[in-house]
Every structure is written in structure tokens, then in C-alpha cells.
Design a protein around this nucleic acid. Structure first.
Lengths: 175, 175
DNA sequence: ACCTGAACACCGTTCAAGT
DNA sequence: ACCTGAACACCGTTCAAGT
């Protein structure tokens, strides 16, 4: 006798993201997600292989949202960079998790395209991949260090970020 | 009746680092560290407040080693950058953990000095802090993405790294 | 077909009892 | 003064039994 579904994969992933932002990865337990969704922990295993798979799904959803933001920016170097940083500030735990997991992140493909387009406009086709990697690495590292509290020598972080984009633009335009 | 010490804080931290590189953070359990040190898990609590404090100590020791490497480099922009990257390749889990923990990282002070010196030589006193942050953010992000397998569009990563340092030098020299 | 309680393995942590 | 086994709380996961 079929029972009506009491939840769904999408609802579980959303609950996982909410719990993650609330309390960090260590609070992202099967029990806390189940409770938020109104079900018992063992029921989650009907939709999700295990906790790691749930975490992967949370990462994938986060990357999707991040990509939407990049695509919605003005696509300039400055626009991409600040959209990236703003997203990380909004969802610090989710952002952090993207680079804390080791897996085939084909979900990053869409984001790569947006950044590559802008990079191509700055340095041309030949060096666009390297230029995109420069910009992405810098933005990723900046935000991660910011979130980790690793910038401890004072100074204004907004200034440092603006200085960084400007220097990158100069460095790339002189290729 | 005093018992002779069967271990020490330093030995525990070293064991923690070894276990970490072997199996990642999730394998860094009190039990695995205790076993490696030849003691039962509860005994660790005589030297270490809890697992988080052990992790903090592992991070601090890792930052110390990293700083030694930076100081032992030729102190050029290129030398610092490749020393940084080489260290991350040697101790990927330890490196990763540095920016995965949120805490007062005064241990980063020594490393900051080395990078600031080099940055000052490139852009002068006024913008040295921002320049140091640009370089550190880029190197950190590059290596983290590399370790996470986030560079998935082919191309040579050594090339991309060299391209990055060169572009940063140009961007900074034209301040 | 989905949901649950019970059960098991494992981990962090405390503590009384050993030496 | 350090070390240990026993115990407790908590978590991930499986599974037989419910609907």
C-alpha cells in the first residue's frame, strides 16, 4: 500500500544548505536535515546514497547559484569579481565547501565559460585560459582568506579587493 | 606514584599531522592519533583540551613549516610563489586545513612579513599591504583549486602558474 | 513504495580506579 | 601524575516490520 511522499530530494538539499549556513559542516547531520524536513533520518536514504552524496548535492546546488550570479553580472572583470565575492559573503559555508570537496566538479563548467568569455576579451584567445585561471584563483583565494580571518594586518579589505582587480587588469592588458 | 610519561604534546601533534596527510581530516580521530602514539585515546586529554585544539595545533605547526620555506626561498616574487605552491603539494591536507579553520591565526604573522618585504620592493611602502594580499590570495586560490581538482579545462597548470606570476609582476610594477 | 524503531559500529569525552 | 577501561551521548547506516 503506497504511502504518499513526505519529502523530496530538492527539499532535502535545500534543508541541507540551510543547516549548513546555520551551523557549518559539522552540524550538517542526517538527523538535523531529517528533522528540518519532517522525517526520520533513515528515510533520507531513500533519496540520497549517504551523507557524502548529500554534501555533493549541496555543493552542486551552490555552484549553480553562484554561476547564475556570475551570468547576471555585467560580465566585466570588475563585475564578475564583485559578484563572486558578494556570493561568498552571502553563503560563506556553501562557498567554502565548494573547494573543500574533491570530486569531478563538472558543475563548474558553466561558471568557467562566463569567466573565460571575459578573459578572452582582455587577452585574446591564446591566453584566455591562463588569464581566467589567474582571475579565478585570485578571487577564490581572496575570499577564502577573508572568510578564514586570515587577513589580520588591518587595512581596508574593500580597498585591497579593488587594488587587486585593478592590478590584474593592468597585468592582463599588457600581455 | 608518578608514572613515566609515555608521550608528549609534540609527539601527539606530529602524529596528528601524519594521520592527516594519510587519510584526510575525517581520519584524524583521537583514536587514530592515540594508537599512533602508543597510548589510549583518553590519555590524549592530558595534553590537549579536545579534538579541535589538536587540530588547531596541527594547523599552527603547518603554518610554521610553511613560513620556514618562504623564508628559505630567494625572496623574489617568483621564488616565494613556487615555495608556497611546492609546500602545498607536499602537504596538501595540512595546507588545506590552514584556510578551513576559522581562528585567530597570529601564526600567519611571520609568513606575512616575508611576503610584505617582497611586495614592498615591487610597489613601495604605500601599497605594500594591498600588493601582498593580491599575491597571497592568488597563490592560495590557485593551489586550493588545484588541490580540489577545480581546474578542469585542460592546459598545463605549471604554465598557468607561471603566467599568473608574470602577470602579477607586470600589474604590480605598473602601480 | 515510503516510513519507522531498533540495532550496530564508531567517535568524542568524562571519570573513577589503577599504578 | 599519568594511564586505563567503562560508560555515555551522538552520529551514520542498515534492516526488518509496519502502512
Amino acid at each position: 500500500m503506497p504511502t504518499p511522499d513526505r519529502t523530496s530530494l530538492a527539499e532535502i538539499v535545500d534543508a541541507g544548505r540551510a543547516v549548513l549556513e546555520d551551523g557549518g559542516l559539522s552540524r550538517l547531520t542526517m538527523q538535523s536535515v531529517a528533522e528540518r524536513v519532517g522525517v526520520r533520518a533513515p528515510s533520507l536514504y531513500k533519496r540520497v546514497r549517504d551523507r557524502d552524496a548529500l554534501i555533493d548535492a549541496v555543493v552542486a546546488a551552490t555552484i549553480d547559484d553562484l554561476t547564475d550570479r556570475l551570468e547576471a553580472s555585467d560580465r566585466s572583470l570588475e563585475g564578475l569579481a564583485s559578484a563572486y565575492r558578494a556570493f561568498a559573503h552571502e553563503r560563506p559555508e556553501g562557498f567554502r565547501l565548494i573547494f573543500a570537496t574533491r570530486q569531478p566538479q563538472t558543475a563548474l563548467d558553466r561558471a568557467s565559460v562566463a569567466i573565460l568569455d571575459t578573459a578572452r576579451g582582455l587577452v585574446g584567445e591564446d591566453r584566455s585560459l591562463e588569464a581566467a585561471r589567474l582571475v579565478t584563483a585570485w578571487a577564490t583565494g581572496f575570499v577564502q582568506m577573508e572568510l578564514a580571518g586570515a587577513f589580520q594586518l588591518g587595512g581596508d579589505l574593500d580597498d585591497a579587493f579593488a587594488f587587486g582587480v585593478a592590478a590584474l587588469r593592468r597585468g592582463l592588458e599588457s600581455v
